[in-house]
Every structure is written in structure tokens, then in C-alpha cells.
């Protein structure tokens, strides 16, 4: 019988290693976001985005990465393909950092937009939108992380089984 998502989640995060991994990943992502904010703000850690949404972003990204690493750990014991969505946590954190750092100046985001091919009018429009919708965008990023977590747990649920309260590869 395949375990449900909750049991998989519980099994993963009942491990001290996973908890340490979650804490480490979350701290790393938080420091990264603050680093981008400082660079964009000429050295000032001027947090204009709601801090609780930044926390939510880093925690959900940390969860996603931890689940992915845990599944990697399992896959080393078997040939089963495992969850790789943890890599997406890097993308969501990076996007989250650009959103969080969008204030008076957004040199990184501006540079990226110019590199893609936008002109000044286009860049300013996007910067204005991002700056005015930080709440919404960070919320979407966190929601994306949660959906990926849900999906990842589903994959693990299908490929693993519970044994003595812990998930192990089905094969």
C-alpha cells in the first residue's frame, strides 16, 4: 500500500538530518535574498517587500529542496527515478530575490530585462509592476513552491513504501 503524501512528509521530516537540511537550506536562501536586496539597494538591506512573505518563500523553497535531497538519498540506494523538483527551489528563490529587491533601484532586474531585449520604457513598466505587486508576486512564488512540494510528495508516494515508519524505495 502506498503511503499518502502526509505520511511521506512526516517520514521525511521526522529525520534530524532532514530538519538540519531544511534549516540550512532556508538560511542559505534567506541570506541569498538579502544579499540580492543589498546589491540592488547600493549596500542597504532595504526590505520593501513584506518580510513574512520572504520568510514564506525561503521556508517553502527549503522544504522543496530538502524533499529533493531526501529523495536523492533514497535513489542512491535504488535505480528508481526520484524527485528533482528541488532544483526548482533555486529558480523560485532567485525570482523571489528579484521581486523582493525591486525598490527605488533594481539594477539586477533591470539588467536582465535589458538583456532579454526590453527598452527603457519596457523595463520601467516591468519594474513599476513588480514594485507595486510584491505581495502578489511573492505569494505566487510561495504557492508555486507549495504546489511543487505537493507534486513531489505525490511522486515519492508512488515510488516508495512505508517500512517501520520510514519511506523506502518500492523496488
Amino acid at each position: 500500500m502506498k503511503p499518502g503524501r502526509f505520511l511521506v512528509f512526516k517520514s521525511i521530516f521526522s529525520s534530524p538530518f532532514s530538519l538540519v537540511l531544511l534549516a540550512t537550506a532556508s538560511i542559505a536562501y534567506y541570506y541569498f535574498i538579502m544579499y540580492i536586496i543589498r546589491i540592488s539597494g547600493s549596500g542597504l538591506a532595504l526590505v520593501t517587500a513584506p518580510i513574512y512573505l520572504i520568510y514564506l518563500t525561503v521556508v517553502t523553497s527549503g522544504l522543496l529542496l530538502t524533499i529533493s535531497i531526501y529523495s536523492l538519498h533514497l535513489s542512491l540506494k535504488s535505480m528508481a527515478s526520484e524527485v528533482s523538483e528541488g532544483a526548482a527551489s533555486v529558480v523560485t528563490v532567485f525570482i523571489g530575490s528579484l521581486v523582493s529587491s525591486c525598490g527605488c533601484s533594481a539594477p539586477i532586474l533591470g539588467t536582465i530585462l535589458y538583456g532579454i531585449g526590453f527598452d527603457s520604457v519596457g523595463v520601467s513598466g516591468i519594474l513599476s509592476f513588480v514594485g507595486s505587486n510584491q505581495y502578489l508576486l511573492l505569494g505566487i512564488i510561495s504557492l508555486a513552491n507549495l504546489l511543487l512540494i505537493y507534486y513531489s510528495l505525490g511522486k515519492l508516494s508512488g515510488e516508495c513504501k512505508l517500512k517501520n515508519g520510514r519511506i523506502v524505495p518500492r523496488k
Binding site: L65, S68, S75, E82
Partner: peptide, 10 residues
Amino acid sequence: KAQALTYAAV
């Protein structure tokens, strides 16, 4: 591939 992505993320 999945392993590589995860290693990259780490």
C-alpha cells in the same frame, strides 16, 4: 538527470 539537478541545487 534528477540527481544532477538536485546536486546543482545543493
